[in-house]
């Protein structure tokens, strides 16, 4: 891999007797949309938690742009350029939609609290710039609401706001943890398009998904995890075709029932 943004090597995390992430190696190239699949309990979310510093790894390294981030705290990792969304949307109660996104600009805001106190021009300018930028980001993710409390919005919109908030941190790498969970087909497609637009704007994206259609349609490459280990790696199609993956997903190797359904996914016209 010539230009790896994220390089994970020998990553391990145990919880009591269970090894949630077991010796995982993974490379995410710069500018890629990388899929991460796997059955429930495969350790996908644990991996996200390790990369973002929510968990401290027991062993192994996580390199962002060649610099070690394993062992740093979440806010340090965030400032290095890794951010995430959550499986169950975690917006900040009490903020309206714009404020949710402005909250993501903490690290890049420069005006001091002292200048906030007297509302110096610098602070005014910065607040206006933040709101404008939040407005742009929200437009980009397709959210029209601005002053509503985010908790009153429909679930799909909340997910978009969460993505806009993640983008507000100016990330190099965004980890999306099941961005289409609980969404219908059209909404999922819209999220897929959004992921592509994020990539085109220079973000590298790692998508954790159950929804194989999304991975097949929008990811350049994919990893499949099972029981904490990497089971397969390649293009999404190669992963789906891998007998080991089929076994992990459908229990036995020759269960034909699920596979044609998976193949069908290929025929989505949106795929180039």
């Amino acid at each position: 891999m010539t230009d790896a943004l994220l390089t994970i090597a020998g990553l391990k995390k145990r919880f009591g007797g269970v090894t949630a992430v077991d010796d995982v190696d993974m490379v995410v190239p710069r500018g890629a949309v990388m899929g991460l699949m796997g059955p429930n309990g495969a350790g996908k979310t644990s991996l996200v938690n390790l990369v973002t510093g929510f968990y401290r790894p027991d062993e192994g390294s996580v390199l962002l742009d060649g610099r070690e981030v394993a062992g740093l705290s979440p806010h340090q990792i965030s400032r290095r350029g890794i951010t995430r969304t959550y499986q169950n949307v975690r917006l900040l109660s009490g903020f309206n939609v714009l404020e949710q996104v402005v909250a993501g600009m903490y690290a890049s805001r420069k005006a001091s609290s002292l200048s906030s106190l007297v509302m110096w021009p610098a602070e005014r300018r910065e607040r206006r710039a933040c709101l404008e930028r939040a407005d742009e980001l929200l437009t980009r993710v397709g959210v029209t609401e601005r002053h509503e409390l985010a908790e009153n919005l429909p679930y799909g919109t909340q997910r978009r706001v969460e993505i806009a908030r993640a983008l507000a941190t100016d990330p190099q790498l965004v980890l999306l943890d099941e961005p289409t969970a609980g969404m219908n087909r059209e909404e999922s497609v819209a999220v897929g398009e959004l992921i592509c637009s994020m990539r085109d704007q220079g973000c590298t994206v790692l998508v954790v998904e159950h929804n194989m259609r999304l991975i097949l349609d929008y990811c350049d490459q994919a990893y499949v995890m099972s029981f904490g280990q990497v089971l397969s790696h390649g293009t999404p199609q190669e992963c789906v075709d891998d007998p080991a993956v089929q076994k992990a997903y459908f229990g036995k190797e020759n269960d034909a029932s699920g596979i044609p359904a998976l193949r069908e996914l290929r025929s989505d016209p949106r795929r180039p």
Binding site: S93, S113, S116, T169
Partner: peptide, 22 residues
Amino acid sequence: RSRYGMAAHAVREDAAVAAALG
């Protein structure tokens, strides 16, 4: 709604999320 004020509110509502925002 300053930088610090929003951070404080974020930490109160969800410290882990706030940390992931830097």
